[in-house]
């Protein structure tokens, strides 16, 4: 049995005033839901990208100590020797002065750092593949005065927690939007069936099956939701383009997951069709 009949509509649903506003309501819900989904999943994608980028990498920091301690370059050499001899380390490279200047530029500006500034030395360490336990490495580095190993774990945990919180809030909001859409669709189908109960009863009496009548409602809701989601999808796309433009101008690198754009419109169209189908069948079941 076809999902949508090509015959002209028997129930004059296209004349309903309530149906005229539905595309605009669905458009609004599509914009909200699409922005929510795309932005949150883009954020999640970015966080997991950072995690992947940082996994397998640690930083060793050698702090400057008082003048009685071993000089900093010697301690860096000792740490490098220890790191390069370790079975879990693939590479260990000290961060050069130019890179340090770049790192600290936001605080001290471009140019060479003041000599009196107690800047620690940094060593970028890349671990061998599949290495997760660096406990031994941390213990070994304790023999070098002022050496600290940073696996970026605490920072990533914070970022991850924040991202999860954002995703959780977005998921709740998405569910609310979907719930509101379903309730609205149920109400609309029920109203339409109430408004046209005489036509529906006549169809029923001339031998139309529930499936035949439900198909009329399903087709109507399909076209209304297609109009609404197309409009909403276009507006959401426009807003995202603007957002990316503003973010780029502000120096932020926003990687929007554009392929997610059709997800919410498709979901809302499916919801409209499924809701119309179920509500129609339930109401028609009340007829003898």
């Amino acid at each position: 049995m076809p999902l949508f009949s090509r015959a002209r509509p028997v129930i004059p649903l296209d004349r309903d005033a309530s149906g005229r506003y539905l595309p605009f309501i669905i458009a609004g819900l599509t914009v909200l839901a699409t922005l929510m989904l795309v932005l949150c999943l883009s954020l999640s994608h970015a966080v997991s990208g950072w995690q992947n980028e940082l996994s397998g990498k640690v930083t060793v920091q050698i702090l400057p100590l008082d003048k009685t301690a071993q000089p900093l370059p010697e301690r860096v050499e000792a740490a490098l020797a220890l790191l390069r001899a370790s079975p879990v380390v693939a590479t260990a490279e000290p961060v050069g002065e130019a890179a340090m200047v770049q790192l600290l530029a936001p605080w001290f500006g471009q140019g060479s750092l003041p000599d009196e500034l107690p800047v620690p030395a940094l060593i970028d360490v890349e671990l061998k593949p599949d290495v997760t336990d660096i406990h031994g490495l941390r213990e070994a580095l304790e023999s070098v005065s002022g050496a600290q190993l940073d696996d970026h774990g605490s920072w990533m945990r914070e970022v991850h927690r924040l991202a999860m919180l954002g995703l959780g809030v977005a998921a709740v909001l998405l569910l609310l939007i979907i719930g509101a859409a379903v309730l609205m669709l149920i109400l609309l189908v029920q109203t339409a069936m109430e408004a046209h109960h005489e036509v529906i009863e006549l169809l029923h009496l001339v031998g139309a099956t529930d499936a035949f009548i439900a198909r009329q409602l399903r087709r109507h809701m399909f076209w209304l939701s297609v109009q609404g989601t197309l409009l909403g999808g276009l507006v959401a796309t426009g807003l995202l383009i603007l957002l990316v433009r503003f973010a780029t101008r502000a120096g932020l690198d926003v990687a929007v997951q554009w392929h997610l754009l059709p997800v919410m419109p498709t979901l809302l169209i499916a919801l409209a069709v499924i809701t119309a189908h179920h509500v129609a069948h339930r109401r028609l079941g009340e007829l003898p």
């Binding site: 002209r8 028997v10 004059p12 004349r15 006549l202 169809l203 001339v206 031998g207 035949f212």
Partner: peptide, 15 residues
Amino acid sequence: HLSVLDNVALPLRAA
């Protein structure tokens, strides 16, 4: 809202 033709065709379409 339906023409005479469509009114009479209703039972056939329903069937």
